[in-house]
């Protein structure tokens, strides 16, 4: 394995795993805590359709993924906010539209386009340096914004209506988090693939959510679980000669299962009997 790390493609895969794992873990915390996981599915499939659209028209799939996922986030936000349509039904319709567009584009493409298929399953072993730079830049920007607005983000994510009543522009932060999710998914798409990226967004965050009440620790744990999922998944896929994207996702699901078993939140809280520190 150590020998393998001397190869450039493996170095790229390890770096892509680090950046996309951390990025997906962090934005997953927004969705899991706001109970908006289905928004993540919708954005992920929009990114997938956008990447295929880029391939079809001959421009960068990543740019297509960013544009489509941002557009989906811009549509989903108001739909989720307005009571005139049931959000889950409206998001379900948008989700099916995105899947429809993706398969339509696939059907229009000349047969045997390996790039299109790699967007399905992801190809972390063939990810380019340009993709890694894009991942690193987006992770840096998301982390910087999170540091800058940490208190407001926590308030909005945990109780949006209360944050809004206190004078925090909660809708702006909500849309901002949706956009961050869209861009993060879009740049992670080449590594993990359109059908699997959603799991890497939700599983590490859901696992971390089982383990702590501390929002800062929740973000760090989710990012860590995302990275560990990618790295262990890579190693296992090499050892088992299995598709990397699928093994990464299954690893993240295994981490979630372990977190559920050891979760302190599953036990009855002992706050009534344990003195609190202050």
């Amino acid at each position: 394995m150590v020998e393998l790390l001397r190869h450039e493609y493996m170095q790229n895969a390890v770096m892509a795993g680090f950046f996309s794992g951390a990025l997906c873990g962090v934005v997953g915390v927004f969705l899991v805590t706001m109970r908006a996981s289905f928004l993540g599915i919708c954005v992920a499939h929009a990114a997938f359709a956008g990447a295929l659209f880029g391939l079809l028209l001959g421009f960068s799939p990543m740019l297509g993924a960013v544009l489509f996922s941002m557009a989906a986030a811009a549509v989903i936000g108001p739909i989720a906010d307005r009571g005139s349509l049931t959000p889950d039904a409206a998001i379900g319709i948008l989700f099916s539209v995105m899947i429809g567009i993706a398969f339509l584009i696939l059907g229009m493409m000349p047969a045997g386009r390996p790039e299109a298929l790699s967007l399905f399953w992801g190809a972390i072993l063939t990810v380019s340096r340009g993709d890694i730079v894009a991942l690193a830049v987006v992770l840096f920007v998301v982390a910087a914004l999170l540091l800058l607005f940490f208190r407001q983000v926590q308030a909005v994510v945990c109780h949006r209506a209360v944050a809004a009543a206190a004078g925090i522009p909660a809708t702006l932060y909500f849309y901002g988090m949706l956009c961050a999710t869209g861009v993060s998914i879009a740049v992670s798409l080449p590594s993990v693939g359109g059908l699997l990226i959603y799991s890497l967004v939700i599983n590490p965050a859901a696992a971390a959510y089982q383990l702590t009440y501390n929002f800062k620790l929740l973000l760090l744990l989710a990012a860590g679980f995302g990275v560990v999922s990618c790295w262990i998944g890579l190693a296992l896929s090499y050892a088992l000669d299995a598709p990397a994207g699928a093994v990464i996702v299954l690893t993240s699901a295994a981490i979630f299962a372990v977190a559920c078993v050891i979760s302190p939140k599953r036990r009855r809280p002992s706050w009534r009997t344990v003195p609190t520190r202050l």
């Binding site: 607005f149 208190r151 308030a155 109780h159 209360v162 206190a166 959510y209 929002f215």
Partner: peptide
């Protein structure tokens, strides 16, 4: 009514500080 998820990652004092954040701005 204020329904709060029992597993929500926010403490009482962090929630109360939300009022300060609103007043101070970002």
């Amino acid at each position: 009514t204020q329904a709060v998820d029992a597993r929500m990652p926010i403490t009482l004092i962090e929630s109360v500080m939300t009022g300060v954040y609103g007043r101070l701005g970002w």
